[in-house]
Design a protein around this nucleic acid. Structure first.
Length: 271
DNA sequence: ACAGTAACCTGTTTGC
DNA sequence: TGCAAACAGGTTACTG
């Protein structure tokens, strides 16, 4: 589910409700997520004030005076602000309680993560090798060009590699390649600097627009208030196999690349 | 260093 | 209707 726009939408949705608030309780109903949820979290967090929430790639970093709570939503996770009295459903695995309100993690597939980092969170093993933020100034075409030399994977897999750039998942990778007119299957090491410039701009534009729309809801993504995101209606190729290209009318193709479905228009996207 | 695959889970859709 | 297979937004860990 959540790529960068969905995680950023979540951050913006929850931050006003919990920033500056003090944790009154921590509930771990299911510790077996992608990694085991640390059982000492209640002792670590109780009576601590949440300073602020930062996003790094698809990770949410909840900063406290004694360290940082790291959250990841995996494929099917979502976070909501709910009255603490709301009965927990089957897949509601974790609650951070702030008095009458709580932050609740719902994640049917349990690919998400809840971890603790004391010390410098940027040096955490899961964060320290991440590439630049796509919406920052240090992400540009020259960066993609430089990192793609001497590599030969398909460009779609290349831009989904979090060591290259963070936050570009399966939906927005297809969308950005369509907008840039590049075939997803194209060898990343053989793409010109000029085309990478266009691709970097497409990535920035699509992610920014998706954030404005509150993310993409395909099945179960919800914002912190329970509403869906509305970028799904903007999708040009993702999930549209067999339907006409909105630019040229040719049928959208689907092809599996690196175990993931890629959608593209073979007329508009050049090899 | 790079590329490819399996693995972690559950739920829904598709096909026979 | 029933059951199995395919598929789903992510990422690490392992192999060669």
């Amino acid at each position: 589910m959540p790529e960068l726009p969905e995680v950023e939408t979540t951050r913006r949705g929850i931050q006003p409700h919990v920033q500056g608030k003090t944790v009154t309780g921590v509930l771990i109903r299911q510790p077996r997520l992608r990694w085991l949820v640390p059982e000492e979290l209640p002792q670590l967090l109780k009576r601590r004030k949440l300073k602020h929430i930062e996003r790094r790639g698809k990770y949410l970093l909840l900063h406290f005076s004694n360290g940082c709570l790291l959250l990841h939503l995996g494929m099917s996770g979502s976070l909501r602000i709910l009255p603490t009295s709301t009965p927990a459903g089957k897949h509601d695995h974790f609650d951070l309680v702030f008095g009458q309100q709580c932050l609740r993690l719902h994640d049917p597939r349990r690919f998400g993560a809840v971890l603790w980092s004391d010390g410098c969170v940027e040096q955490h093993p899961l964060l320290k090798n991440l590439g630049p933020e796509p919406l920052s100034d240090c992400f540009h075409g020259a960066h993609l060009f430089r990192h793609s030399r001497n590599r030969r994977v398909a460009v779609k897999q290349f831009i989904m590699d979090s060591k290259v750039v963070v936050g570009v998942g399966n939906i927005y990778a297809s969308e950005a390649l369509f907008q840039a007119g590049i075939s997803p299957n194209r060898n990343c090491g053989r793409i010109s600097a000029r085309r990478y410039e266009k691709l970097a701009l497409a990535i920035k534009e699509i992610l920014a627009t998706a954030i404005e729309c509150g993310g993409t809801t395909l099945q179960d993504f919800v914002q912190a208030d329970g509403n869906p995101g509305y970028f799904a209606q903007e999708l040009q190729v993702y999930g549209r196999e067999g339907e006409p290209c909105l630019v040229c009318g040719k049928a959208i193709q689907r092809k599996t690349l690196g175990q993931r479905s890629s959608y593209y228009c073979s007329h508009c996207q050049k090899h």
